[in-house]
């Protein structure tokens, strides 16, 4: 967050860990590290040299740092209410471009009209350093949405790996703040550095396996009236796990729950919620407006494909491919967009 800013610098790879170490004195440093077995996950960085930058979009998305799965809102007692907004300074290093594209929309969603103070407090105190993807996953399709693999604006800081050095593009004042103090570690880029970045981007683009055209899917729904039996078929495979929503870097829904520690003390928390559950729209008096699974699965796709463009001029999907990984029923965005394109019958004939 912060206002827009634009400047490019070069950081030698050998300077990276010194820079991060200095920054870590002022803020928590979080980055992609080895988890169980071959997994890579975002964690607090203990050893800077263990950061793994050559990784795909990680599960779960970095929205967990600005909109956590569970967040304490208030602590209340008999005569006091304490607002538990989190304003700890953090640097999240190694985020993917798709996630930055999502955060740009998050900023609009939570920042416009009514400002969500829990989100904004975290957001104002978090700097994201994203990295242009050199190595997209087979599930990735940001390329079809313009939300990756490299961004031209919207990031705090974007790294492009140029072999022995990074091209460091600074896109916000928050980003500049953490560079400014250590400007001696950086140098000015040459024209050839931009050429190398362009080359890296071309080579990354060539590696994408999926070409998903969501516009195609949107038009199909809007103008060709997709049969309800199509959505019935989708809903039939839904496991109601909520994974697509939990994983989605653009899903924003939450539930608010009170927990009592005693008669007068307790906390009010919020938790990720998902429209995939029938209880999501439940009303008092045993009324379940979305009791049928098909209403809920359809709603999710309509929100992302139809209403997001109406509201924000962008799809509610950045092509990170997480739902492809996490959907046990294989009814993720990429699959559905593909099935909308080819139609059910042709798919069966495959």
């Amino acid at each position: 967050m912060g206002s827009i800013y634009m400047e490019s610098l070069i950081l030698a790879k050998s300077n990276l860990s010194y820079w991060l170490r200095q920054l870590r004195k002022e803020m928590a440093l979080i980055g992609p590290l080895k988890g169980e077995n071959n997994d890579i996950v975002f964690k607090t960085v203990e050893n800077i040299h263990e950061i793994i930058l050559d990784c795909p979009a990680l599960i779960p998305s970095p929205k967990e740092f600005i909109f956590p799965q569970k967040e304490d809102m208030f602590r209340f007692s008999k005569d006091k209410v304490e607002n538990l907004r989190n304003d700890k300074k953090r640097l999240i290093f190694g985020v993917r471009s798709c996630d930055i594209s999502a955060i740009i929309l998050f900023d609009r969603f939570y920042g416009e009209k009514f400002v969500d103070d829990y989100y904004m407090s975290r957001r104002n105190n978090t700097v994201f350093i994203s990295i242009g993807c050199n190595n997209p996953d087979p599930t990735c399709f940001c390329i079809g949405l313009g939300s990756g693999p490299f961004l031209s604006l919207g990031f705090d800081i974007q790294f492009s790996d140029l072999g022995d050095r990074y091209l460091v593009e600074i896109g916000s004042t928050n980003g500049m703040d953490i560079v400014k103090k250590f400007i001696h570690l950086f140098s000015q880029p040459k024209k050839s550095d931009y050429d190398d970045q362009y080359e890296a981007m071309l080579s990354s683009q060539a590696r994408f396996e999926k070409r998903i055209n969501l516009e195609n899917a949107r038009q199909k729904i809007l103008f060709e009236k997709v049969d309800d039996s199509f959505w019935e078929g989708v809903a039939k495979r839904c496991f109601e796990c909520g994974g697509c929503v939990y994983e989605c870097p653009l899903c924003t829904c939450f539930n608010v729950i009170d927990r009592k520690y005693s008669e007068t003390e307790g906390i009010r928390i919020r938790e990720w919620d998902t429209c995939m559950f029938r209880g999501f729209t439940k009303m008092a008096g045993n009324i379940w407006p979305a009791d049928k699974k098909v209403m809920r699965t359809k709603r999710w796709y309509f929100h992302k494909l139809i209403y997001y463009p109406e509201q924000f001029g962008k799809f509610g999907c950045v092509g990170c491919g997480r739902c492809t990984i996490t959907c046990p029923g294989r009814i993720d965005m990429a699959t559905i967009a593909y099935r909308l394109k080819v139609g059910e019958n042709e798919r069966k004939a495959d």
Binding site: E36, N37, N38, D39, E64, Q69, C241, G242, I325
Partner: peptide, 22 residues
């Protein structure tokens, strides 16, 4: 404990969880 996420390479769930797991 502020959240849960699946292990992507686990031979059983391969990056997925059911609603109870989540």
């Amino acid at each position: 404990i502020i959240g849960v996420s699946p292990i992507r390479h686990h031979p059983v769930n391969k990056g997925t969880l059911c609603v109870k797991g989540w």
